[in-house]
Amino acid sequence: MITLENATKRYGTTTVVDGVSATIPGGGVTSIIGPNGAGKSTLLSMMSRLLPLDAGTVHVDGLDVSTTPGRVLARTLGILRQENQLTVRLTVRDLVGFGRFPHNGGRPTVLDREHIERALDYLDLSGLADRFVDELSGGQRQRAFIAMVLAQDTDVILLDEPLNNLDMKHSVEMMQLLRRLVDELGKTVVLVIHDINFASCYSDTLMAMRDGAVIHQGPPEEIMTPAVLRDVYDVDIQVELIRGHRIGVYFA
């Protein structure tokens, strides 16, 4: 569970995230949606302690992200960023092994090796384990990074726009994977996502932001309505029920 209290971020005189107080339930997929510049990624960065808060607090499973030592927090909270460019040459297995750093401080044990192999297996990377990360395709590389976060063995995983640069097939696979992390492993997954339909089909909770504030939060049935979407995006969006999923139609 993630609890935000009055979380605020300012750049100079511009307030990017404006006193957000919200609770993200544990054990589910929560998608943060909203137009560009709404403060979604900034809010996620604050939850991930990548950006310091100017005011307020964020607690992840009871740990204050601003004051908890990094190593301790890293055993509860795993993060995946949009850009995963490596300047160093590593094999996939080495990269995944770094996920164990918060637990072993760089000295792997037998238990760590099991975690690494399990993570590789879970993401179907066993065949690629000895390849260098820079030789992989974009989708494979992203899976390698997710395997690293999985090996980190945290209850909470935060992802910033994980569908960026992925084609349809890989986007679907990524969302199915996030679903499996919740359904099979009981993780709490929070992601920033632009595609409201992916968010609608795979999330338990949608969190809609606009102008630095969370203006709506609830299950897809409540958020995926023309009225709420108009409020969030300023666009008229038809919502159709297709095979039990609420799909927003806004292309024409």
Binding site: S48, P69, I79, R107
Partner: peptide, 21 residues
């Protein structure tokens, strides 16, 4: 610092995510 430096070489965000100050 050698192990921490290995993590640091993955980039700031990843290093912070893995608990390096």
């Amino acid at each position: 610092l050698r192990h921490r430096l290995d993590v640091l070489a993955l980039g700031r965000d990843t290093a912070v995510g893995l608990g390096v100050d």
